[in-house]
């Protein structure tokens, strides 16, 4: 009870405004000929599709590494896993599980290296994370051309060299999570139960991780690194661990995203993905150094709700396509607001 009160107190006006904005969009939707059931299903689908990216922000925020602008590294690991799984010819649930399993070692390796870098640059993590992410995406662009994958679904038939920019997952694991126990609400609206369950599982695992001895130490490192060190906790190790977990979640996140989306996207696709996750968790009420599961859920829902509802409702209401611009201003405004807020940690 008190934590809910606390949460409301910390909620802050930007989130309240966004909440009511979204609410009014839902209320207004039917008047502009937008079907509520479809919208709701769409929001739920995107919620499950993007939630894990947002969840991936939590460990690094908790350990004091700031927002993971370099989430693309995890996404790359996920893409490698997906490609290996396709190459191995795994299909269905096995293909999805295989992709996660094969992505894991890459995620750990990338996360470890990336964590080492971030430990060297304490205080400047976010800018550097961003450029490390950008640089690795561009590096992988080269690799996608060079690497010797040869499954016919993934390479250009003729005229091109290397992997396709988008690879269809139709015959592999498209919607394997979404369709699991899916509920058809109305003829055109389906609730992707499996996807939501998987997201809930991830949230539960993260929630309980933060309750373990190591999770407690990680939070303490983010809250006050000097305290943690004086209590015998290695801050560098905790930070690296948080980066590895975040990177791994990034890998899982892209796999969930792809199975729902039906396509695997290579090349520059991961470049901008971290920003959406950053925006979502900040909208959810997290600060640069404190984030909770509640922030993840609320943030993902509000952000994805905004993305889904503004185009359909605003555009039909105003008879323009102004929604894109509104989204651009609102979500980037939130990020700026969060960055200019005084740090909550008092010293």
């Amino acid at each position: 009870m008190s934590s809910i009160k606390q949460y409301l107190a910390d909620f802050g006006w930007p989130r309240i405004i966004i909440f009511f904005f979204l609410l009014s969009l839902f209320v207004a939707a039917p008047f502009f000929g937008v079907r509520l059931d479809n919208s709701l299903a769409d929001v739920l689908n995107r919620f499950g599709q993007n939630g894990i990216f947002v969840l991936a922000m939590v460990p690094m925020i908790q350990s004091g590494c700031g927002l993971n602008f370099g989430l693309s590294l995890g996404i790359i690991a996920g893409l490698i896993g997906a490609l290996l799984s396709i190459q191995a010819g795994l299909v269905g649930a096995l293909g999805f599980a295989g992709a996660i399993a094969m992505a894991a070692p890459f995620a750990v390796l990338f996360g470890w290296a990336y964590g080492r870098i971030l430990n060297k640059v304490k205080g400047e993590e976010m800018t550097i994370a961003m450029y490390v992410g950008f640089a690795s995406v561009m590096f992988m662009c080269i690799m996608w051309i060079i690497l010797p994958f040869d499954s016919p679904t993934m390479i250009w038939g003729y005229g091109g060299k290397g992997l396709r920019t988008t690879i269809s997952l139709e015959s592999f694991y498209k919607r394997v999570l979404n369709d699991f126990l899916a509920i058809r609400m109305t003829p055109s609206a389906i609730i992707p139960t499996g996807e939501l369950l998987f997201f809930s599982l991830c949230i539960y695992l993260m929630w309980s991780f933060l309750r373990t001895k190591t999770g407690t130490a990680m939070t303490a490192v983010g809250s006050n690194p000097d305290f943690a060190r004086a209590s015998g906790v290695s801050t560098d190790r905790m930070r690296t661990l948080s980066v590895i977990i975040s990177t791994f979640l990034g890998a899982v996140g892209i796999l969930v995203y792809q199975q729902s989306y039906g396509f695997l996207q290579l090349y520059t696709a991961p470049l901008q993905m971290p920003f959406a996750a950053v925006a979502a968790i900040l909208i959810g009420g997290a600060s640069v150094n404190k984030g909770s599961m509640l922030n993840v859920v609320v943030g993902t829902f509000l952000f994805q709700g905004l993305l889904t509802m503004t185009p359909s409702v605003i555009n039909s209401a105003l008879q323009t396509d102004m929604s894109e611009v509104i989204r651009l201003i609102v979500s980037n405004g939130i990020i700026i607001y969060a960055l200019t807020r005084k740090l909550k940690v008092t010293k």
């Binding site: 407690t216 130490a217 906790v233 010293k347």
Partner: peptide, 24 residues
Amino acid sequence: DRRGVGLLLDESLEWNIAFTAMQI
């Protein structure tokens, strides 16, 4: 340095008191 090193100011009493014993 109570506020700098001694305490997790943003955490609960429970955390502060038990943390070191828990970790060590």
